[in-house]
């Protein structure tokens, strides 16, 4: 039985990881084609990413857009989760509205945003792309933060008040530290989502706001170069690093509170 469980788990992991395992080694190929076998290992495609102005630009753009989206979506999603926690009329309906961006097809949202952003003069601007990504990321933050808020016993907050903590101090000293894990994992999700978002970016970004994911998408259509694999490598490493940092930040936060 135990053996079967282990085999099942391994298969599940392989199923999830196989595409990555196929593409990632190609990031280090010396060949000009995105194919196996790999003649010899080289970092030429990473150098290409850094040297080529278009790729370079897209990396910088992603470094602007993803952190901004993360910050904005985390703040707004957290506020929404806190608001929906209280006794709000139509709370269930409001929550559904907040979660809509998860279920509405990205293409539909993209068209809508493009029409709207043209009117607002936000099309082909960084702010436009950041706002578009933020709309998409808020539900993930909302779900993550709501989950950790649901785990907080209201009586613990009441206890803080009875011990002399004003509502503001109850929030900063009790609620916020207890909900922090949810906030940080929401932030990690928002970052990952912005980093690999393509569809909305296609609609609202101009040539100057091409993100790394968007650039990979065009390259796939124009010439399939191993630079894509290198870019994918960067995205994956970037996501893992940021997630790990947010995780460590959460641990550090708790440790600092402990001492």
């Amino acid at each position: 039985m135990r053996w079967l469980k282990g085999a099942y788990a391994s298969l599940a992991v392989i199923f999830l990881m196989a595409p990555l395992l196929v593409i990632l080694p190609l990031a280090f190929t010396s060949s000009a084609f995105l194919t196996y076998p790999i003649p010899s290992f080289s970092t030429r495609w990473f150098i290409e990413l850094v040297d080529n102005a278009v790729w370079q630009r897209s990396i910088v753009n992603s470094l602007i857009i993803a952190p901004s989206t993360t910050a904005l979506a985390t703040v707004l999603g957290t506020l929404a989760a806190l608001g929906l926690r209280g006794r709000v009329p139509f709370a269930a309906t409001l929550r559904t509205v907040f979660l809509l961006p998860m279920v509405v097809p990205a293409v539909v949202m993209g068209v809508g945003m493009q029409v709207l952003f043209v009117r607002l003069g936000l099309v082909n601007s960084y702010l436009g792309v950041i706002l578009a990504h933020t709309v998409l990321a808020i539900p993930f933050v909302l779900i993550s933060v709501s989950g950790s808020l649901a785990g907080i016993d209201r009586r613990v907050e009441r206890a803080a008040e009875s011990l002399g903590a004003s509502p503001v101090r109850t929030f900063t000293r009790v609620t916020l530290p207890l909900m922090m894990p949810g906030v940080l994992s929401g932030a990690a999700l928002a970052f990952a989502l912005s980093l690999d978002e393509v569809v909305l970016t296609l609609f609202v970004a101009g040539p100057n706001q091409r993100t790394l994911a968007r650039q990979m998408f065009s390259t796939l259509r124009e010439n399939i170069s191993p630079a894509i694999a290198s870019a994918a490598f960067i995205i994956i490493v970037g996501t893992v690093v940021v997630t790990a940092l947010l995780f460590l930040a959460g641990r550090g936060w708790q440790r600092q509170r402990r001492s």
């Binding site: 016993d153 009586r155 613990v156 009441r158 206890a159 803080a160 008040e161 009875s162 011990l163 002399g164 903590a165 004003s166 509502p167 109850t170 009790v174 530290p177 207890l178 708790q254 509170r257 402990r258």
Partner: peptide, 25 residues
Amino acid sequence: IPTYRRDMGVVFQNYALFPHLDIAR
């Protein structure tokens, strides 16, 4: 008068300790 200015200690059935703080804190 709001709770935090009433100066009353409250003990709850489920203890309601702060899970993120040690006993001294």
